[in-house]
Nucleic acid binder design. Structure first.
Length: 558
RNA sequence: GCCCCCAUAGCUCAGUGGAUAGAGCGUCGGCCUCCGGAGCCGAAAGCGCAGGUUCGAGUCCUGCUGGGGGUACCA
C-alpha cells in the first residue's frame, strides 16, 4: 500500500539524516502516516518531526527539514513540504494518480485488496439465532455485520468461511418443542394451555397448522415425550428453512450450518471433556463438574456439567470452539454476538487457554442493540412474548439494499435507533440511493457515449495522461484510499467504514460530473472525452466493488 | 454495589492524539439550452459537565451527570 511505502521512505530518511549528521542519534518514534483532514495539506502527512523534538532536542521544523532533505525522489510523490509547526506533507503525483486507472482495470474487480491474512483460514460465525422462530430485526444487524466482516476479511487476504451455529440442544429448543406440542393439541381441539415460559408468538399457531397439514393428528396418540421429540425435529427443520430463506432475502448465504447436537452425536463433546479432565482442569463441586478457569486468569470457575447431569452452555462453547480450532484447524475465528453476551465474551479467552490455544486467534465482535420504533413507540423484540418484527416484514417494506446500508452506517458499539416508519416513508431519501444513483449515472454516461459514437474499445486504451483536472484528481485520490479503508475496516472488524467511504466516493464523483464534461460534442474534446470515459469506467468498477463488499446492489439504472 | 459500552448540528450518525470537527434527514435560499435534478451550490446550527496528561485532546486518564447492557448450575 502506498501509505506504507511512504512510511518506509521517511524511516529511511531519518536514519540517513542521522548517519550524515543532520540529526542527532536518537531512537525515533515509529513513523505514522496519516491522511490530513484538509486536502489542502496534501494526501499524506506525518507528525514524526514534532514527536521527535524532545528526543532530538531540536525544533520540529528543523527536524522536518532534515528529514525532507534526505527523502528520495519517487515517481508517485511530488516533493515533500515541511510546514509549521512541523508537519511533513506529501502529495501524490498527478502522473501516478492518472496511472491508477490502469491499476484499477488490472485488479479486475479486486482493487483495494490488502494482504493482512496471508491466506490464513478464518471462520466467521454469525446470526446463530435459536431455530425457535422467524428471524427478527435484532438478528438483522448481526447478519449484515457478520456477512460484511466476512467479505472484508476475504478482501484482506483470508480464506473465509461463513458459518451458522444452530443452538438445537438447549433449554430454548425444549421450550419451543413443548410450545409446539401444546399449540398442536389446541389446534386439534384439546385443552393444553400455554405456560408463561412458553413462546407466546402467533407464529407458533401457523407452525402447528403446518405440522397438522403435513402429518395429521398422529402425534396425539403418541406418548407425550415421544411426541415432543418428534415435533422438536420437525419444528427445527421448518424454522431453519425459514431462517435460511430470510437470510437469503438479506443476500446472506452460509458455507456451513453447524448443529450443536452434532457435538454430542459425533463424540466431540466427550473428547473435549476427557481432554480437560486429563489436563487436570476439571473439578467436582456441589454435584456439578466445573472448569477451573480461575487457574487460567479468570475470577471464577465455570460450570461444565450441571448437577442435573446436563451440560451447561459454557461446555457447548468449549466443545464448539475445540471443533473449530482443533478438529477443523481454522487459524482464526470471529464470533459475532450482541452486546448482551458481553459477559460470555469475556470468558472466551479462558476457554481458549483451557484448550491450550492462543486466545488471540479468537475474536468476539460485539455490537450494540437495535431499538425499533414504529409510530413513535419503541417495539420490544422478544420471541417469547411474541412481539417481534421479522426480517421478512422489513425486507418487504424497505428492501435489502436499504436495510443493509442503513445497518452499515452505524459503528458496532453504538445503540441503533431504527425507525420503521421513517425507513419506509423516506426510502427515496435513503443514503443508499445516493450511492446507487452515482453508479447508475456512470452506467448512463457510458451508454450515452456509445450511442453518440464513442467506441468502448477505444476508451479502454485511452491516454489517461490527459486527466489533469482537479476534479479528476480528486476522484482518483479517493479511489486510492480504498485499500486503506479496507485495511482499517478489516483490522477493526468495523464495516461501517465502507458505508461512509461509499458516500464520500459518490460525493467526489458527483463533483467530477458537475465540473468535467465527459461526453462532449466538440471535436476538439475527443481525446479528453475518451480519457474521461476510461476514468468513469474505472470509477464504476470501484463503486461496484465497494457496494459488492457491503452486499448492496450496484444498479445500472434506477 | 461492581464491570462494559455510549453521550458530537433540531433528528439519525461518522470522525486512525495533530493543522478550519463531517455526512444524511430536516429548515432557509439558489441551479436543468450536449452526459440521469434520486444531483449540485450556498446559509443557519454542535464535541454532556469539571479536572488532568501532552508541544497538541472530540479522541488518552480521573471524577460527575444522563442513557444502554451485563453481573446464574439460562443461552
Amino acid at each position: 500500500m502506498i501509505r506504507d511505502q511512504i512510511a518506509e521512505l521517511v524511516t529511511k530518511a531519518i536514519k540517513k539524516a542521522q548517519h550524515k549528521g543532520d540529526l542527532p542519534k536518537y531512537a525515533s518514534p515509529p513513523v505514522e502516516i496519516a491522511r490530513p483532514k484538509d486536502t489542502g495539506h496534501g494526501d499524506y502527512t506525518t507528525a514524526v518531526a514534532m514527536q521527535s523534538a524532545r528526543f532530538a532536542r531540536m525544533a520540529p521544523m528543523a527536524i522536518g527539514q532534515a528529514i525532507a532533505k534526505r527523502l528520495p525522489q519517487v515517481d508517485y510523490l511530488d516533493a515533500a513540504e515541511v510546514v509549521p509547526p512541523g508537519f511533513i506533507n506529501f502529495r501524490l503525483s498527478e502522473r501516478w494518480l492518472a496511472g491508477q486507472v490502469a491499476a484499477i482495470e488490472a485488479a479486475a474487480g479486486r482493487y483495494g485488496d490488502v494482504d493482512l491474512g496471508h491466506g490464513q483460514t478464518c471462520q466467521v460465525e454469525f446470526i446463530s439465532a435459536n431455530p425457535t422462530g422467524p428471524l427478527h430485526m435484532g438478528s438483522a444487524r448481526n447478519a449484515v455485520l457478520g456477512d460484511v466482516v466476512a467479505s472484508l476479511l476475504d478482501a484482506a487476504g483470508y480464506a473465509v468461511q461463513r458459518e451458522y451455529y444452530v443452538n438445537d440442544a438447549g433449554t430454548q429448543m425444549r421450550t419451543f418443542a413443548e410450545t409446539l406440542y401444546r399449540r398442536y393439541q389446541q389446534a386439534l381441539g384439546q385443552a393444553a394451555p400455554l405456560e408463561p415460559h412458553h413462546y407466546q408468538g402467533t407464529y407458533m399457531l401457523d407452525l402447528a397448522a403446518a405440522v397438522i397439514a403435513e402429518h395429521g393428528d398422529r402425534f396425539l396418540s403418541m406418548a407425550e415425550e415421544d411426541a415432543i421429540a418428534a415435533l422438536s425435529a420437525i419444528g427445527e427443520t421448518l424454522e431453519l428453512a425459514s431462517i435460511r430463506e430470510s437470510a437469503a432475502g438479506l443476500r446472506i448465504h452460509f458455507d456451513r450450518w453447524f448443529t450443536e447436537k452434532s457435538l454430542y452425536d459425533d463424540g466431540i463433546f466427550e473428547r473435549v471433556m476427557a481432554r480437560l479432565r486429563q489436563a487436570g482442569l476439571t473439578e467436582l463441586k456441589d454435584g456439578a463438574v466445573w472448569l477451573r478457569t480461575s487457574a487460567l486468569g479468570s475470577d471464577r470457575d465455570e460450570v461444565l456439567i450441571r448437577s442435573d447431569g446436563r451440560p451447561g452452555y459454557y461446555a457447548s462453547d468449549v466443545a464448539y470452539h475445540y471443533d473449530k480450532f482443533v478438529q477443523r484447524g481454522f487459524d482464526r475465528v470471529i464470533d459475532v454476538w450482541a452486546v448482551d453476551h458481553q459477559n460470555q465474551a469475556r470468558r472466551m479467552p479462558h476457554l481458549m487457554k483451557a484448550l491450550g490455544l492462543d486466545p488471540d486467534r479468537l475474536t468476539i465482535v460485539l455490537y450494540d442493540l437495535v431499538r425499533l420504533y414504529r409510530d413513535g413507540q419503541e417495539v420490544k423484540l422478544s420471541k417469547r412474548s411474541g412481539d417481534i418484527v421479522t426480517v421478512d416484514e422489513v425486507l418487504e417494506e424497505v428492501g435489502a439494499d436499504a436495510v443493509r446500508f442503513l445497518l452499515l452506517t452505524r459503528s458496532n458499539n453504538s445503540v441503533m435507533d431504527f425507525d420503521l416508519n421513517l425507513a419506509v416513508q423516506q426510502s427515496d431519501e435513503n443514503p443508499v440511493y445516493y450511492v446507487q444513483y452515482a453508479h447508475a449515472r456512470m452506467a448512463s454516461i457510458l451508454t450515452t457515449a456509445a450511442e453518440r459514437g464513442f467506441q468502448p474499445d477505444r476508451w479502454a486504451v485511452a491516454d489517461t495522461a490527459l486527466l489533469q483536472h482537479p476534479a479528476e484528481m480528486a476522484l482518483l485520490r479517493k479511489m486510492v484510499e480504498l485499500a486503506e479503508v479496507i485495511e482499517k475496516a478489516a483490522t477493526q472488524l468495523a464495516p461501517h467504514h465502507l458505508a461512509f467511504y461509499a458516500l464520500e466516493l459518490a460525493g467526489v464523483f458527483h463533483a467530477f460530473y458537475r465540473d468535467c464534461r465527459v461526453v462532449s460534442s466538440d471535436p476538439a474534446d475527443v481525446g479528453v472525452s475518451y480519457a474521461r470515459l476510461r476514468l468513469v469506467a474505472a470509477t464504476k468498477a470501484v463503486f461496484a466493488r465497494v457496494l459488492g463488499l457491503m452486499g448492496v446492489n450496484a444498479p445500472d439504472s434506477m
